[in-house]
Simulated scan of single mutants.
Amino acid sequence: MKVTFGQNGSGAGPLYRLYTARLRRQLAQLHVPHHVAMMIDGNRRWAKQLGYATPAHGHRAGAAKMREFLGWCDELGIDVVSLYLLSADNLRKRDSNELADLIDIIAELAEALSREGNWRVQTVGRTDLLPPDLARVLSDATERTKDHTGLHVNLAVGYGGRNEIVDAVRSILAQHDANGGTIAELAESLTPEIIGQHLYTTGQADPDLVIRTSGEQRLSDFLLWQSAHSEFYFVEALGPDLREVDFLRAIRDYASRDRRFGG
């Protein structure tokens, strides 16, 4: 079935709504992922293409899209969503003005999500690398929602997958040393499960599906350990242009796959 969505592909017309409803009916009979990780990419390109003076317009549009995306996930019954908002590399490499705008936008997003019904917000990343005001907002959002039982939202801020693994190993070493164990004993007892218990996402199931927008096909240091057996789906749309139909197609594609978990 070929569907025409209109001149800009925004999905505002009746055919789009009918097609979206059809996809939702299909998915009601299928297995949806428990945990979805989202890499929203292309915000800067979106702003440039539309002639905006700064990337901040793109980042703000991307943040608004992420709130919409979380609503789609919640409606579909997905339990956990991880959003890649700011990498540790971004903190070192981004232009200072762009970074300042991005930090403000992330703070506004975290504050808004923490007041979004029964959603639980958790920060994953090195908050010690962040400006104190942003670290405080993220901490407050986590504390405010710690008893919520709805959609679990991981905000990856100041995050790096390699850093996470290093921090996990350091935590294991410190714990082992405190217990008076030897290096030989540690080497003998170390397992992937033990490392998993010391990751930022300890206690959570690994992502079933990782989605990335803008057509890029790389992990960019996101959830390296956790995504070892994840399925991947790449969307051509730039982050702010992501449509619900794009998301539903990703879920439909996931449900059709024969997951082998490394086999």
Rank of each mutant, 00 (worst) to 15 (best):
P132M: 07
S82T: 05
A64P: 00
Y159E: 06
A168P: 01
L199D: 03
F222A: 02
H229Q: 09
A168Y: 01
D246G: 02
E193H: 08
V210F: 05
G203S: 07
Y19N: 06
F222C: 02
R162N: 01
G150F: 10
L113Y: 00
D104M: 05
I105N: 10
I195G: 04
L134A: 04
A184P: 11
P33I: 13
S256E: 04
R259S: 06
L138R: 05
G9S: 08
L199H: 03
D258P: 03
V235R: 12
Y159W: 06
E188P: 09
D167A: 15
L50N: 15
V80W: 13
A135F: 01
A47R: 08
T4I: 10
F261A: 03
D79M: 14
L99E: 04
T20S: 13
N97V: 15
E143Q: 12
G125Q: 07
K146P: 01
L199V: 02
R17T: 10
Y19C: 04
G263V: 04
P14M: 08
F222N: 00
R257S: 10
D89Y: 06
G196V: 13
L85S: 07
D253S: 15
R22L: 15
N163K: 10
I106K: 00
S256L: 11
R25V: 06
G263I: 10
R22P: 06
H35E: 04
E188G: 09
G215Q: 10
G51K: 09
R136M: 15
R22V: 15
A168H: 00
E216C: 10
R162V: 07
N179I: 00
R162Y: 02
D246E: 11
N179R: 13
D253T: 13
G62S: 05
Y159H: 02
L224F: 09
A107G: 14
G150Y: 13
E68T: 12
L223K: 03
M66A: 06
A112W: 03
K48R: 14
D167E: 06
S82Q: 01
G262T: 03
A255L: 03
A168K: 07
H229W: 09
G71W: 06
M38A: 11
A178V: 05
G263Y: 11
A255W: 12
F234P: 08
L238H: 05
E108V: 05
Q26K: 02
K48H: 12
P240A: 12
R212K: 13
I183M: 04
S256Q: 15
G51D: 05
H176T: 15
N97K: 09
S114P: 14
E193D: 12
A178T: 05
A88E: 05
D241G: 03
E111N: 10
A64S: 07
E108D: 15
E244R: 12
A64G: 00
N154I: 00
P55K: 00
L238W: 07
H176A: 10
G181V: 08
D253G: 09
I40W: 09
V80Q: 14
H198R: 14
A250D: 09
H34T: 11
Q175W: 08
T213V: 12
D104H: 04
Y16N: 08
S87M: 11
R144D: 02
T191N: 11
D101H: 08
W72V: 12
G51S: 01
G180A: 05
G42R: 04
L76T: 03
Q175N: 07
A174Q: 14
N179M: 13
N179P: 03
E188H: 14
S96C: 04
Y19H: 14
E75L: 13
Q49G: 14
R60H: 14
T145N: 01
F261V: 04
F5K: 01
A135D: 02
